[in-house]
Simulated assay, not measured.
Amino acid sequence: MNTQIMKASTQLTGRVLMSAIFIMAGLNKLGAGYAGTQGYMESMGVPGVLLPLVILLEVGGGLAILLGWQTRIAAFLLAGFSIISALVFHASFADQMQSILFMKNLAMAGGFLFLVAGDIHIWSIDAKRGAAS
């Protein structure tokens, strides 16, 4: 297989896998999960009024990563979101599930930081535009 095609398809697959969790989570919050998520946020000391911004970041940032548009900016924002979410919602280390979710968020942040530092992906809007983001 051509190494250029292999690199491009691997990059695209990585973006699909990294973006899927955020796109799905954001869309789920738009439906029946809105009130429950808002209540959970408030129970953790986070103003529920921020939920629309969370949804916008999850869906918008996820789509940006998926399409390779403004990838570095979206990846930086999602990395920060993942770290903040880990610290606010999953820092209960006595609970094994929360510890796992904490580490998952840190791993996702690490992956997004690779996107921030990496090259423009071949099959992306950024590459088509010749953008440095």
Rank of each mutant, 00 (worst) to 15 (best):
I84K: 00
E58Y: 09
A86S: 07
F22G: 13
G130M: 10
F81Q: 00
L30R: 06
S99N: 00
I84E: 09
L53N: 03
S9H: 09
S19T: 02
G31T: 05
I5G: 01
I120S: 12
A117K: 04
I122C: 07
A79S: 14
H121Q: 15
G110W: 03
A8L: 12
W69P: 05
A32T: 12
L53E: 09
A79R: 08
S133F: 13
G111Q: 02
L67E: 02
G111P: 02
Q96A: 11
I65H: 07
W69F: 15
K128D: 07
I55W: 06
I73Y: 07
A64W: 09
P47S: 10
R15P: 14
S99Q: 05
S82N: 06
Q38I: 01
L115K: 00
V46F: 12
K128W: 06
S99M: 02
V88C: 02
I65K: 04
G48E: 09
I23W: 03
S9I: 10
L12V: 08
S85M: 01
M1G: 15
V16P: 05
L106S: 03
L115E: 07
D95K: 00
A75G: 10
A117W: 08
M18F: 14
A32K: 09
I120H: 05
G33E: 04
L56G: 12
M103N: 00
M6Q: 15
A86I: 00
G118D: 12
F112D: 07
M44H: 13
M103P: 00
T10D: 11
Q70S: 09
G36F: 06
P52K: 01
M44T: 08
T10G: 08
M24D: 12
S133E: 10
Q11D: 15
G36P: 05
S9G: 04
V59L: 08
I100D: 06
R129A: 14
G60M: 02
G60A: 07
L30N: 08
V116T: 07
S133T: 12
S43L: 00
L27N: 04
L106M: 11
M41Q: 04
L56Q: 01
D119C: 11
G26C: 03
Q11S: 15
I65R: 02
A117M: 13
G118S: 06
L50H: 09
L27I: 15
L63T: 03
A127P: 03
G26W: 04
V116D: 13
Q96N: 06
A107G: 09
V54T: 11
Q38T: 05
F102I: 01
T37Q: 03
L56T: 13
S19I: 01
M6F: 14
G14S: 14
G118C: 10
G31Q: 08
V54M: 00
I65Q: 02
M103D: 00
L30T: 12
I23M: 13
G130L: 01
V49R: 08
L56A: 14
E42C: 04
G33M: 04
I83R: 05
S9Q: 05
D119W: 01
L113G: 10
D119S: 15
L66Q: 07
L57M: 11
M97P: 00
M44R: 12
L57V: 08
G61E: 15
A8S: 13
Q4Y: 14
F76S: 13
A25H: 10
M41F: 13
Y34G: 02
I73C: 06
A75W: 04
W123F: 15
P52V: 01
I84T: 07
Q4R: 14
V59T: 02
W123E: 06
S85N: 03
G48L: 11
F112Y: 14
V116H: 04
F22A: 08
L57E: 02
